[in-house]
């Protein structure tokens, strides 16, 4: 790969305060194209906030976010342009409740990208096949299972042909038997070379899919390394403690 290419996304000296709470404390992070970065850490460690700062769903208090060599600002026009290229998958799916799965996936294509209806539906169907729920295209979100809803939400994000995918605890709201079907889809995307930043508690998935694992605590990055290194040979005491707690379960 061309070494002069800027990182897909780069976070520099990022801080986020919620009132008195220092949710993200001086974080630096860079993700190259095609890489899968998994962020782990105890709840309240600021990992979701960091992820949400990457597409400015939370506006950083200070610091910089660079997406494909462009600095992200609060300028709405630029922001919408960038966001159309950054797919996001939420913990609670957030499918549009009044629209069918198909309409969920075609809406942003048509409104933001002005894609023709036919073409948008073809793209939607292709993505639904990929996540394995092409037969649910005409269902409302409330009519399908949680696992299927999350896969539909992934298809919705993919249909915009994003350069980067952000996953905010995508399996945390799912029943245990549905977690695997979502992780399988994410694994498929990782193998396809889609750049992904994933906040998760699924250590097995992190080990198998990640190029880099980041451990966060109290808003700071405590440790980052390859999954083998971080899981087998953690350097920091906090990482060791967290891993021993979570792996005991």
């Amino acid at each position: 790969m061309d070494n002069n290419q800027p990182p897909m996304i780069e976070v520099k000296n990022l801080h986020k305060w919620f009132g008195d709470l220092h949710a993200v404390d001086d974080v630096n992070l860079s993700v190259q194209q095609g890489k899968v970065v998994v962020i782990i850490g105890p709840s309240g460690s600021g990992k979701s906030t960091l992820l949400r700062c990457m597409n400015f769903l939370e506006t950083p208090t200070s610091g910089e976010v660079w997406f494909m060599g462009e600095r992200m600002t609060t300028d709405q026009k630029d922001l919408n342009r960038h966001r159309a290229e950054i797919g996001m998958v939420f913990q609670s799916f957030n499918l549009y409740a009044h629209l069918t799965v198909m309409e969920n996936i075609t809406l942003a294509q048509r409104v933001v990208k002005k894609t023709e209806k036919k073409e948008a539906e073809a793209i939607a169907l292709e993505q639904l096949r990929k996540v394995g729920i092409a037969d649910k295209a005409d269902k409302l979100p409330s009519q399908i299972s949680g696992g299927q809803q999350q896969r539909a939400a992934i298809a919705r994000a993919l249909a915009m042909k994003p350069k980067l995918m952000l996953f905010d605890e995508p399996t945390s709201a799912l029943d245990p038997e549905m977690i695997k079907e979502v992780l399988d889809v994410m694994m498929l995307l990782a193998k396809e070379g889609i750049t992904m930043v994933i906040v998760t508690h699924e250590m097995g998935f992190a080990r198998a899919a990640a190029d880099e694992v980041i451990f966060m605590d109290f808003g700071r990055i405590v440790e980052k390394s390859t999954p083998e290194n971080l899981f087998n040979n953690p350097q920091s005491e906090r990482t060791k403690l967290f891993l021993s707690q979570i792996l005991q379960k």
Binding site: N55, L57, N80, R81, H82, R83, A84, E85, I86, G87, M88, F90, N94, L95, Y96, L107, A108, V111, V112, A153, R156, A157, M160
Partner: peptide
């Protein structure tokens, strides 16, 4: 949030 994250 979902809508804004898609660029709407």
């Amino acid at each position: 949030e979902a809508a804004r994250s898609q660029g709407l």
